[in-house]
């Protein structure tokens, strides 16, 4: 590799260019075609990569016959999913429980029950207008209800600000919008579960 791009080789390159223009012309055309071909290959390679699941060291190490290996493989997959921002449902459940636990601690510590949202407290029958999904899975419901909790907590925060800013309509508007969001999400959660 060394010397390929050095001054001597460059000089030789230009001399070759000067004295063999036709050959150079041909080689440049060939190069262009080769580059285009490479680009197509790269695109094709990308398609392969996207359709195939990512491999991990656990995949390589684990044979399908060994239950321990399968478990390790599963754990690795879960890690991958978690890493990609899409934790498996079990992890989401754990995360939700974790959040609840932490929130619970916070509530116990602060003695403030206000952040307990409608999604957590209301237990009425699902309204007929609630957005339902045919074939909705419990996992999806869990996700919807987790998001509902977050939305309604944000509603609480926003609406707590509004009374302190009576003269600024944007606070009131934000509160109304957040309340609508919370109601919609709560309906969705109830319709789901």
């Amino acid at each position: 590799m060394t010397g390929v791009s050095g001054p001597v080789r460059s000089d030789l390159f230009f001399r070759t260019l000067r004295f063999r223009p036709v050959a150079m012309h041909m080689s440049l055309r060939t190069l262009s075609l080769a580059l285009a071909g490479l680009a197509l290959t790269a695109c094709a390679k990308k398609a392969d990569t996207e359709s195939a699941p990512p491999e991990t060291a656990a995949d390589v190490a684990a044979g399908p016959e060994d239950i321990d290996a399968l478990e390790a493989q599963l754990a690795a997959r879960e890690d991958q999913l978690r890493a990609l921002g899409a934790p498996p449902p079990e992890m989401r459940m754990e995360a939700a429980k974790r959040a609840e636990h932490e929130d619970g601690d916070a509530l116990a510590g602060a003695g403030d029950a206000k952040t307990k949202t409608e999604a957590q407290t209301a237990h009425g029958p699902a309204p007929s207008s609630a957005p339902t999904q045919p074939g909705t899975s419990p996992r999806r419901c869990e996700s919807v209800c987790d998001i509902t909790t977050s939305i309604c907590q944000l509603r609480d925060h926003i609406c707590d600000l509004a009374p302190r800013h009576d003269d600024e309509p944007r606070y009131q508007r934000a509160c109304e919008r957040a309340t609508t969001d919370c109601e919609f999400a709560t309906e969705a959660c109830h319709a789901c579960s």
Partner: peptide
């Protein structure tokens, strides 16, 4: 030809995430 060829290659590589 060189510029177009190189351009196509770069676009292809960029699309491929390389």
């Amino acid at each position: 030809g060189v510029v177009v060829g190189a351009g196509v290659m770069l676009a292809g590589l960029a699309q491929a995430g390389r």
